[in-house]
């Protein structure tokens, strides 16, 4: 094909060839700034244009320093151009000095004196420890980390696990008792109560899975509202994209409603997917 021979290269190739030679680097100095433009190839054979802007500052210095500024570079820097070489000199991110103050230590004596002031007012009930009932802050109670002394706490608040745990509680001595794990201590009784409450809450919760990505909280609300009043609704979403992760938890007010919802929605076709609905299972890592 003689015609094909005449065309040496297509226009697309020509562009490639043009790109082969890099434009020379330029240096422009204008009103106190030096702008250096460089061209180079990166690893992907793509042409890069690098523009560096330097601020030129004039400083008055002593003669010896000015003289040293004119010294020629040597050693490994012998081939460097004037000005900092970006390979060796890097401007890093801003850092700040974190000031450390000893304010917390200063506050301590003040704290003491404020208690004294309150005490001098005559009102003995102002400062009262919640643990032992004596006159100090609860956080300063000498028995705060140990077993509570002599039945100040109402019996009904004591959990069953607590009373079986130790006999020293009645002796009134903080020392001498063996180690008691935090969750077995008296103060923890309330906490276990609250976690029990949370678990009781879970009994009205259902888990909906196999939701489509485009599901929003409003869609979900519309879906479950007909079954009864809702306490809480949680839709798992991707942190970055905000898209639904495919499952949700719904806390109903009443267990009956939740049961109804499970019955109706399990296997229900929703947005091209078939929903999977069941009771929400308690987290597996809890030990009770």
């Amino acid at each position: 094909m003689p015609v094909a021979d005449d065309i040496k290269s297509s226009w697309a190739d020509e562009v490639e060839l043009e790109g082969g030679a890099l434009p020379p680097s330029t240096e422009v100095r204008e009103n106190g700034f030096k702008i250096v433009t460089d061209y180079k190839y990166n690893e992907d054979e793509k042409k890069l244009k690098i523009v560096r802007t330097y601020k030129i500052e004039k400083r008055t210095v002593s003669k010896s320093i000015a003289l040293r500024k004119t010294w020629k570079k040597f050693g490994e820097s012998a081939t460097d151009k004037p000005g900092p070489n970006p390979a060796t000199t890097i401007a890093s991110e801003d850092v700040y000095m974190q000031y450390v103050t000893s304010k917390e230590e200063d506050n301590k004596p003040e704290d003491e004196s404020s208690i004294d002031k309150l005490k001098s007012l005559g009102d003995k009930s102002v400062v009262r420890c919640r643990t032992c009932g004596q006159e100090h802050w609860t956080t300063k109670c000498p028995w705060k980390d140990t077993v509570l002394i002599g039945g100040k706490l109402p019996d009904d608040k004591k959990g069953p696990a607590v009373t079986t745990g130790f006999t020293n509680a009645e002796t009134g001595k903080p020392g001498g008792s063996k180690y008691v794990p935090p969750n077995m201590r008296d103060g923890a009784a309330k906490r276990t109560d609250s976690t029990n409450m949370a678990r009781r809450d879970d009994t009205t919760a259902i888990r909906v899975s196999n939701l489509s990505e485009s599901t929003t909280e409003n869609d979900l609300e519309d879906l479950v509202k007909p079954f009864g009043p809702i306490q809480k609704l949680y839709l798992a979403k991707d942190k970055t994209t905000g898209a639904c992760k495919g499952f949700a938890y719904i806390h109903f007010k009443f267990r009956n409603d939740a049961a109804k919802a499970i019955q109706a929605l399990n296997g229900h076709g929703y947005d091209h997917l078939i929903l999977n609905v069941d009771w929400s299972k308690p987290p597996t890592h809890s030990n009770q």
Partner: peptide, 11 residues
């Protein structure tokens, strides 16, 4: 020290 420019190395 002013601009971080390397003057040289002692090889």
């Amino acid at each position: 020290s002013l601009n971080g420019e390397r003057l040289g190395t002692f090889n």
